[in-house]
């Protein structure tokens, strides 16, 4: 046994020396930066395949990569729910000379405010918010998720028979609350007597509790539900079992439950990033605020064609979308 320990320790020391002696290696392996290649890095709070917020930015990059091919190169750090770690990642990407660094989480704002002045050549984009801190190299982007919420709400109001609608949210603030408030307003714009019941389960990850919240809504008479954030997959499952319609947000949830998802509000951040890329080419590094909304196509209501919805519902949805774009419908 003692010999084994000795052998092991020699091996470990060798390993340490090996690792310690090669710090120069990665620098040469870094890709050579050509003038025309745009290098983008993004940082997200959850995993990029969460079927929700983080996936939306990743999907946008995939679209842009498809359009730009070799002209675009992107890397990412996902799961950066610790603000401090995200700050380190943002600083590191800027230091490594990435052209555009995207902080895709409203909680990263403070860090960006600290870091951006140190890298005046780098474009920083922060979402979802409207605040650029007056920095010449920070763009802000947000989603008018109340708009999509409103359209979803209008459709839900037309489809409900029990006049009870359930909502499952994570915590009572931010993008989720904006969507939920828009949804409730949309429902009540059609029929103020409909009872919209909202539960916030206090977590972004507790799938089981989200599922029970949905069951509770169903027992309380809801025949239509919606919800925001990644843990709602638990709720969608219950909607599916009960045959209750579901309205999605942040990503297209039709693929997950094609027999009950009526429509999803989907973010198309690529609309905004095309603009940010173009501005950079013109030498504008920041200071602008972008909104992904129904008008500019940054936000799309993706309707599940397979459900065979009544034409009158689709017409009303379209009418609402046009009304919001034209400004004739104001969301309270």
């Amino acid at each position: 046994m003692k010999n084994l320990v000795k052998v092991l320790s020699v091996l470990l020391v060798l390993g340490l020396v090996l690792v310690a002696c090669t710090p120069a290696a990665p620098e040469t392996s870094e890709p050579v930066v050509e003038d025309e290649v745009l290098r983008v890095a993004f940082v997200t709070p959850s995993n990029i395949n969460d079927l929700a917020f983080s996936q939306s930015i990743s999907d946008a990059m995939i679209v842009l990569k498809g359009e730009m091919g070799d002209k675009l190169e992107y890397v990412y750090s996902e799961n950066m729910f610790v603000v401090d770690d995200a700050a380190a990642a943002i600083r590191d990407y800027a230091q490594k000379g990435f052209d555009i660094v995207i902080a895709h989480g409203s909680q990263y704002g403070s860090s960006l405010q600290e870091i951006a002045p140190d890298f005046p050549e780098t474009v920083f984009a922060w979402g979802t918010t409207v605040d650029t801190f007056g920095q010449p190299n920070i763009h802000a982007y947000e989603a008018a998720s109340d708009q999509g919420g409103f359209v979803n709400g209008v459709m839900a109001a037309l489809l409900t028979e029990t006049k009870v609608i359930g909502v499952v949210g994570p915590i009572e603030t931010g993008d989720a609350k904006l969507y939920v408030d828009g949804f409730v307003a949309g429902v009540h714009s059609v029929d103020p007597s409909i009872d919209v019941r909202v539960t916030y389960i206090g977590s972004f990850s507790d799938v089981a509790l989200a599922s029970e919240a949905a069951t509770t809504h169903l027992s309380a008479g809801a025949d239509i539900m919606t919800g925001s954030a990644q843990m709602v997959i638990g709720a969608i499952g219950k909607a599916q079992e009960a045959g209750a319609y579901w309205f999605g947000t942040q990503a297209d949830q039709t693929s997950f439950a094609s027999d009950v998802v009526v429509a999803s509000q989907v973010y198309h951040w690529e609309v905004i990033f095309r603009e940010i890329f173009a501005l950079r080419a013109q030498g504008v590094l920041g200071g602008k605020t972008f909104s992904a909304n129904l008008e500019n196509g940054g936000q799309v209501i993706s309707i599940n064609e397979g459900l065979g919805l009544d034409q009158s519902v689709l017409d009303k949805a379209n009418e609402t979308i046009q009304g919001i774009i034209a400004g004739t419908i104001a969301i309270p």
């Binding site: 909680q107 993008d175 609350k177």
Partner: peptide
């Protein structure tokens, strides 16, 4: 403690700037 934090940061302690904004980020003022 987590629930108390969430409540305080979206309620009594929220950044006055955020309280005005559409998507209220749950954070305090600086």
């Amino acid at each position: 403690a987590v629930q108390i934090m969430n409540y305080m940061l979206r309620g009594p302690l929220i950044d006055p700037v955020q309280a005005e904004a559409a998507s209220q980020i749950p954070q305090t003022a600086r």
